[in-house]
C-alpha cells in the first residue's frame, strides 16, 4: 500500500510533516537529513525540488533553493540520491514538492516513473492548475502510484475546497494565513475559525496545516482541528544554523520539541 495512505489509516491526529530542500545545506545532505528526520520520528517528509523562481515561498526557503541550485542540485540528481533509500531502511512516507517547470522539462511521465522506482509516495506541485492536472496528468500520477496534494487557503471558497478535495488523494494542505512560506502566522482566532470551518466541511482527505508553524505551541494550535501540521522554514533555519557534526542530534531535539507529549 502507498505509505502515505497507510500513514493516515493508522494515524489521524498530530501528524508531523517536515519539509526540507533537496541538496541543502550541502549537495549530498539530502539522504542524511531524510534519515535523521525518520529516526527523530517525523511522520512524513516533504522534499523540496529547488527552483530559481519559487513565488509561493518566503525568504528562508527561497535562499535554501538558491543555495541548493548553486550546489548543483537538479531533478535528475535528486533521483540519483534517492535511488536506494527504500533498500537502505528508509520507510517514512515521502512527498516531492516543487514548481511545475523543472518537472515538465524533466518529462512528466519520466518523472512519475522515477518517483515510483525510488519509492516516492506523493507530490505537491503548487503551480499545477487543477484543470491541467485533471485533463493531462491525473491518469499518469495514478498509474505510477503517486498521491496528489492540493493547497487550500483562507480565501478558497467552500465550493472550490470541495473540488480540490474531490481530486486530491494524499491530503489537503491548509495554508494557515495569506502569505508565503515562513511568514509569522500567529495562531489567532481567525486562523482557528478558518480551520474549524474547514473541519466542518467534512473533507474526505486528511488535512495538514502549513505556513508559519514553527514550534510546539503553533503545532498544537494548528493540529486542534486537523490531522496535523507541516513545518518548513523553521526546519530550514535549523539546518542553516547547525554545524554538520551536530545535525542529527539537533534534528532529533527539534522534532521532539515540536511534539513534547510524544517524546
Amino acid at each position: 500500500m502507498n505509505r502515505l495512505t497507510n500513514l493516515f489509516q493508522h494515524k489521524t491526529a498530530d501528524v508531523l510533516n517536515v519539509y526540507f530542500t533537496a541538496g541543502f545545506p550541502q549537495l549530498n545532505d539530502t539522504v542524511p537529513v531524510l534519515r535523521a528526520l525518520q529516526e527523530a520520528g517525523a511522520d512524513l517528509v516533504e522534499i523540496g525540488m529547488p527552483y530559481s523562481d519559487p513565488v509561493a515561498d518566503g525568504e528562508t526557503i527561497q535562499r535554501s533553493n538558491q543555495q541548493a541550485l548553486e550546489n548543483g542540485m537538479t531533478v535528475g540528481k535528486l533521483f540519483e540520491q534517492l535511488q536506494d533509500i527504500r533498500q537502505q531502511g528508509i520507510t517514512v512516507p515521502i512527498l516531492l514538492m516543487g514548481y511545475l517547470n523543472p518537472v515538465v522539462q524533466f518529462g512528466v511521465e519520466k518523472f512519475c516513473q522515477h518517483c515510483q522506482a525510488v519509492g516516492i509516495d506523493g507530490v505537491i506541485l503548487p503551480d499545477l492548475p487543477l484543470e491541467v492536472y485533471e485533463r493531462e496528468y491525473r491518469p499518469l500520477f495514478a498509474e505510477y502510484g503517486l498521491k496528489v496534494v492540493f493547497l487550500v487557503t483562507p480565501q478558497t471558497s467552500a465550493a472550490r475546497v470541495r473540488q480540490l478535495d474531490a481530486l486530491a488523494d494524499g491530503f489537503i494542505y491548509l495554508v494557515a494565513a495569506a502569505g508565503t512560506t515562513g511568514a509569522q502566522t500567529d495562531m489567532n482566532a481567525d486562523v482557528d475559525a478558518y480551520l474549524s470551518r474547514t473541519k466542518e466541511l467534512g473533507l474526505r482527505n486528511p488535512t495538514l496545516v502549513g505556513f508559519g508553524i514553527s514550534d510546539a505551541a503553533s503545532f498544537a494550535a494548528a493540529s486542534r482541528h486537523t490531522t496535523g501540521a507541516i513545518i518548513g522554514s523553521a526546519f530550514i533555519r535549523l539546518l542553516q544554523q547547525t554545524p554538520a557534526g551536530e545535525r542529527t542530534a539537533a534534528i532529533h531535539d527539534f522534532v521532539a520539541g515540536i511534539r513534547p507529549v510524544l517524546a
Partner: peptide, 11 residues
C-alpha cells in the same frame, strides 16, 4: 497561456 498560479493567488 493559462493560469499556472499557486492556490494562494487563485482567488
Amino acid at each position: 497561456g493559462g493560469a499556472y498560479v499557486p492556490e494562494m493567488l487563485y482567488p
